[in-house]
Design a binder for these strands. Structure first.
Lengths: 341, 341
DNA sequence: GTCGACAAGAGGTACGTACCTCAGATACTC
DNA sequence: GAGTATCTGAGGTACGTACCTCTTGTCGAC
């Protein structure tokens, strides 16, 4: 009653174990006709390779690298913590993990880092990087070298990456828009804050947000995006200016990093209590703001899930196994004060 | 540089492989002093047992049963689909799964089912059942027979179950309350609908909901719970009566199964468009209602996660391994139209 | 001092798979 | 029909662990 083994295939196909092995591992020296016979037997008895026994025999090690922004944002730190935890857990069986920091703001430095990778010492990489032609080329090179490549959080859809692990950012923006519209009254103005509109995730979020507000909440006005470029001073200055100039301001949507300085600026203005703030990514900071009702909702993607999913997907790609989409789909979580676990 | 094996322990402790094996598997015939020596060696070199190799050698099969309500609710069906999927996936390695239906409404029948289990053919069970002293006793018996026991969705906190897999229902109710409060205007009445207030999850949800409304939204009035007892006719009748009698009704919170008949009754009344409906559990039906703006939000627990988590936890209990809480915590998901994946 | 009980060692086989070698069979070429 | 290239079979070892048997060592009791 237990699952069939290679021996069963051999018996069923009327060939020897060695031949089954050659077919299974795509080794040469088997006639097409025999291959077909073995394949038929495999299908008939429903054989599935025992990956763990195979890895044991093969002494397989999966060597993966996570390529992440060096910028010390709260979100990046949360992500790295999740990586450490995954590493410690049994999930990391036969997995060697490495984290590589890249300077996000300089596209050339990113490409230099990617080119500097010792690809022969790696089986796969997970990359979180902004979208530039150079990065796409670098990924093509990694694929040429036979690595598994997944993009993390922000996708590079026209690159040769195998898979994207992260949320649909248009839908995330739409969700923020729907929440904002439901929370606010019939009219008012909404400030949009972003770290940089050059990154794909911010663009997509803005797109989704605007779309929902325009179609479902026509009384609300969305102001142009304000960018902070990783600069707290700049954030406080520009946000302060908008608040002072906009008495009808009712909501603030923060699409990326920089929530600490944004909230500082809002507190400074004295209008925080009257504003509905929606931000992205649950960090110790945004969690505290939720608890104290300074932020109404946080759109989140679970970092633990992101990391575990990346590892599973990278392994599946390396082993040429199917990916269970329903398990790997990263959900757009709405976090409010009461469901902070 | 690869991970240490039993051989390394033997070398490090200066004993033979057989002795290491006896210590690792708690077999008799080793002096306390030698046990300590081996333990010290294990700690020093940081040995972790390779569970997969161990299971391979031991020809281990995990035999688990899921004990679920027989009632053909949409949620139960979703759960069973998730089970099938998990079974098909590689997660189910060395796991034999069985589903056992129990009639939820009859406590004695439940206990009869539990007593009828062939415990010698099982290693663990996941149970979703209402809370009665008889069920608690039945679980104690399962534990006496050496099974791993987890409770699913609705906890039995004073039983001898090993673990609970599901959301914190008080927090789920609070979340629903917070959403409802934010969505509604400053005043209005809220109807609470439940399948049966005898089940623990409904009670806890109501508790959390009332608490948040009372403290944060004092202008809102929560009406007494209306129960449907799995009876669509009864649902339509009682809900229709409340709607007719309450012109100030602004919100409906549905805490359990029966959303199909509830929504039918609301549509019938002609007031659905003016009501803010919050329900539990994402099913094909509630999903459609979200898309058509008939339901404002659904509080959900991901069934795929529930099932996978149950399997991982049951295995960990069987193998006496630690449970990774952060991975197993089931999140309270807020689903709205725009984040329906 | 010899016995028995217990502790520890040495060595084996097995699990399902990978990968190797060598021998034997079959098909193809001239 | 001999030679050669290609295919297939048989058998082995290995991976890390479990579990078995048989032997040797040690200790204390009588």
């Amino acid at each position: 009653m237990s699952r069939p083994t290679v021996h069963d295939i051999a018996k069923e196909a009327g060939v020897s174990l060695a031949t089954v092995d050659r077919v299974l591992n795509a080794r040469p020296g088997v006639r097409d006709q025999t291959i077909a016979k073995v394949q038929a037997a495999i299908d008939r008895i429903g054989y599935v390779r025992d990956t763990f026994a195979a890895n044991l025999a093969r002494q397989r090690q999966y060597r993966f690298a996570f390529i992440l922004p060096a910028a010390p944002s709260q979100f990046a730190r949360t992500l790295k913590d999740a990586l450490k935890e995954a590493y410690a857990s049994q999930l990391a069986d036969r997995v060697l993990l490495k984290t590589i920091d890249i300077p996000t703001q300089d596209p050339h430095a990113i490409v230099r880092s990617l080119r500097g990778l010792n690809t022969s010492a790696l089986d796969g990489v997970a990359i979180m990087a902004p979208e530039t032609p150079q990065v796409r080329d670098a990924i093509a090179r990694l694929k040429d070298e036979g690595l598994a490549v997944v993009t993390l959080i922000s996708d590079l859809p026209n690159s040769r990456r195998d898979h994207f692990i992260g949320i649909n950012n248009v839908a995330a923006g739409r969700t923020a828009g729907q929440l904002m519209g439901n929370f606010l009254g019939p009219d008012g103005e909404i400030l949009i804050v972003s770290n940089s509109m050059r990154s794909r995730d911010s663009l997509e979020r803005r797109l989704g947000f605007d779309d929902v507000i325009a179609s479902d909440f026509p009384g609300l006005t969305v102001l142009p995006s304000v960018e902070s470029y990783d600069d707290p001073q700049r954030m406080e200055r520009v946000v302060g200016a908008v608040i002072a100039a906009r008495p009808a301001l009712a909501g603030v949507y923060s699409m990326g990093a920089g929530n600490t300085s944004l909230l500082a600026a809002l507190r400074e203005s004295g209008r925080l209590k009257d504003l509905t703030v929606i931000a992205h990514e649950l960090t110790p900071m945004t969690r505290r703001c939720l608890q104290e009702n300074e932020i109404a909702a946080v759109i989140n993607q679970n970092v633990g899930h992101l990391v575990r999913s990346s590892l599973r997907v990278l392994r599946s790609i390396c082993d040429d196994l199917p990916i269970y989409e329903s398990q790997e789909r990263v959900r757009i979580e709405i976090m409010m004060r009461e469901n902070l676990d």
